[in-house]
Design a protein around this nucleic acid. Structure first.
Lengths: 202, 202
DNA sequence: GTCTATATGGGGATAGAC
DNA sequence: GTCTATCCCCATATAGAC
């Protein structure tokens, strides 16, 4: 793999990420991707073996959550653990909003292609679930349904869009990581019933 | 418009809703829709004038939030108002999960087609925003960023999927409306800093 | 209103020259 | 590795018979 090879592959990946985020996988053609990347149409097949594999490669290259072991030390305490996940998901969301858009668009679809990326993301959800359950058992979290609460937490973390489209509705400027993390942590920990002054835990 | 005309149009709409929810708009072909509906391929053009219009008609026919005036009496008090919105969005989500799936998949895309449906949904978001701001001013809600908090609330309400796909992760049975509404209201009101015993407000 | 047959375009992928 | 030209398929939409 030469240097220029890496460059072209990366250009295609970045173009695909941008367009998939805006238009969805099915709404984006290989020709569009290559136009955006300044590459020839044939190179998607040559370098990736097809459009589907570009999608898969996107997650292999840009999705960070694969090395969850790193965070294991944080996961012994439910509050510390949940905060760590909030921090990392928020960091990811702000560092690569396009990939988050793609996830939001594709995560709920039914297709063989999408299944593979769901497997990539489920570990994070399962960890949230595990920490919620542990917190409930030790009495620091208060909630009725584990299933619903897991969706509440993931929805709070993922359901965002701070761009041109929502400007007519929004009023803040571009959010900083610190503010986003703090806001999400406060909202979620409060929502989980962590007794008041959730801010103290930050 | 005869009775059988209504039937076929409705069959096509229902088939489109089902397939768009599973595969997305671009991932669904007119042929698939008509197969599912048991109708001839040409009838989409005949009755709707094209696939795009089927999408638009979907929201005209099935999206309930158009008559928001009905709920105005609830909107004078921020807590009552937010609870009403939680109730109605939850009711909508459970009564028509397919349309919610479609919204989740399309709301963040950029396209002329999608813009029209976003306009359909924004009024609800704006009402959430309005109530949050009023609640903050009167001191019943505690939060830093109005923008972020609006996304937290909408994310909590919309980000769900209780079907086959998530079964490996889920454990509860099919949720009842009462439970879903109660869980969401508790989580959100707590998250907004409504001082403890959020349950009392239900 | 419904169907068949077809027009027209765009999709992804590839053979083969460079 | 990259490009052009082309293949084949499937998409939407419609003309015209019934």
């Amino acid at each position: 793999m030469s240097a220029t090879d890496l460059d072209v592959k990366m250009k295609i990946l970045l173009a695909a990420k941008k367009l998939f985020a805006k238009q969805g996988f099915d709404g984006t053609s290989v020709r569009q991707i290559c136009d955006e990347a300044g590459a020839n149409v044939a190179l998607v097949s040559y370098h990736f073996g097809g459009k589907d594999n570009v999608f898969v490669e996107l997650f292999k290259s840009f999705f960070p959550g694969n090395r969850m072991e790193v965070y294991e030390p944080f996961f012994h305490d439910p509050i510390i653990g949940i905060k760590k996940l909030i921090e990392e998901v928020t960091r990811f969301r702000l560092s690569d909003p396009e990939l988050v858009m793609i996830i939001q668009q594709e995560i709920f679809k039914h297709s063989a292609r999408v299944e593979t990326i769901q497997q990539t993301i489920f570990p994070v959800w399962l960890k949230v679930r595990e920490l919620l359950e542990k917190g409930r058992q030790t009495g620091v979290f208060q909630f009725r349904s584990l299933d619903n609460t897991m969706f509440f937490v993931m929805g709070t973390l993922l359901f965002h869009k701070n761009t041109d489209y929502f400007l007519p509705i929004l009023s803040d400027g571009v959010p900083t990581f610190e503010n986003m993390y703090r806001d999400a942590a406060v909202f979620i920990l409060r929502g989980l019933g962590v007794p008041d002054k959730a801010e103290d835990y930050l």
